[in-house]
């Protein structure tokens, strides 16, 4: 752990500028550009977004609300309501029956449909590949001798992962909103608790739901980043992360394991529906955010400890 990019103590807090360098004997030390941290993050984000794979994954995410919307439209166009016996059954909120009355429910339905599998899978692919992929292709060594600095590079990767959680969620939400608006009527919204609010307020709540869904993903994103520091194979890291999502989801459905359920990162995911009540049920929302924060703290530290001490041999 002694090898990092610079003295560790000064490293964890605010981005520092050029002041802590030892007075060197020589020539033209260039000062650190103040905008550099931003430039690294921007480079990181655009590089991620320019990958064909990323665009394909986002495309799939955008497609899901369209498929749901079209399916609901076809199902209900030949008269009658939405297929009987369904709707909100089981533990997850489904929102399907409400879509025909109000297109905005397609946003909630799409998020509820993608949050258990598709969204975390996409996040797992992106974050699992974040460091392992660069190590595998060798670009990591050039970033490090540039020198990006291990802590800074990890921070840039982490920030990019967080940004990507938001981007992926927004893609689903916006696609749901646009599809919903095109296929179904819009208007005042009746919340789960029966109270009707204006469409504007419903839009605000939809934005809040999207933010909650994005925040629900930061736990798995950080786990993916940690796994990514363990190997030089992007594929292995992606597969492990996605496998972990599925495993956690399965464990979460086994009643005998209820003791560990509150510590599984997907356990409170569907609590976002509580934002659609009046008054809002904060209990599980807060638990969810706390759990995600715990995952970020634990696996973020583990990723940092691992990455700053790792021998870069590829």
């Amino acid at each position: 752990m002694s090898r990092a990019d610079e003295p560790k103590s000064a490293d964890t807090g605010v981005p520092k500028t050029a002041d802590t360098r030892p007075p060197g004997p020589t020539t033209d030390k260039r000062p650190t550009s103040p905008l550099w941290a931003l430039a690294l993050f921007r480079s990181e984000l655009t590089t991620t977004l320019r990958r064909w794979r990323t665009l394909a994954l986002l495309g799939v995410l955008a497609l899901i609300p369209i498929l749901i919307g079209v399916a609901v439209k076809i199902e209900t166009s030949d008269g009658g309501g939405f297929g009987g016996g369904r709707g909100g059954g089981g533990e997850g909120p489904a929102f399907f029956p409400q879509i025909t009355n109000n297109g905005i429910f397609l946003v909630f339905a799409s998020l509820a449909a993608t949050l258990p599998v598709f969204l975390p899978m996409v996040i797992g692919v992106i974050t699992g590949d974040a460091i392992a992929g660069e190590a595998g292709s060798g670009t990591l060594r050039y970033l490090l001798v540039a020198p990006a600095g291990r802590t800074r590079l990890l921070l840039a990767k982490f920030t990019t992962s967080m940004a990507f959680c938001l981007i992926a969620t927004l893609v689903v939400a916006l696609s749901g909103l646009v599809t919903g608006a095109l296929l179904f009527p819009l208007g005042d919204v009746t919340l789960i608790s029966g109270i009707t609010v204006s469409f504007e307020e419903a839009l605000l709540r939809a934005l809040g739901v999207a933010a909650l869904v994005a925040l629900s993903l930061v736990g798995i994103a950080t786990v993916g980043l940690f796994i990514s520091t363990l190997t030089n194979s992007g594929i292995a890291a992606m597969a492990t992360t996605v496998g972990l999502v599925i495993t956690a989801q399965i464990l979460d459905t086994i009643p005998q394991l209820h003791a560990i359920h509150p510590y599984l990162f997907p356990h409170y995911w569907l609590s976002f529906a509580d934002l659609l009540r009046e008054p809002v049920y904060w209990d599980e929302l807060v638990k969810n955010l706390g759990l995600q924060g715990l995952y970020v703290a634990v696996f973020g530290s583990a990723a940092w400890a691992r990455f700053t001490a790792k021998d870069i041999t590829a």
């Binding site: 550009s33 550099w36 970033l143 540039a146 600095g149």
Partner: peptide, 13 residues
């Protein structure tokens, strides 16, 4: 090259 240059903290954007 733009990407590698962005990783250098002393590189002037």
């Amino acid at each position: 090259l733009l990407r590698y240059d962005a990783a250098d903290p002393t590189a002037d954007p």
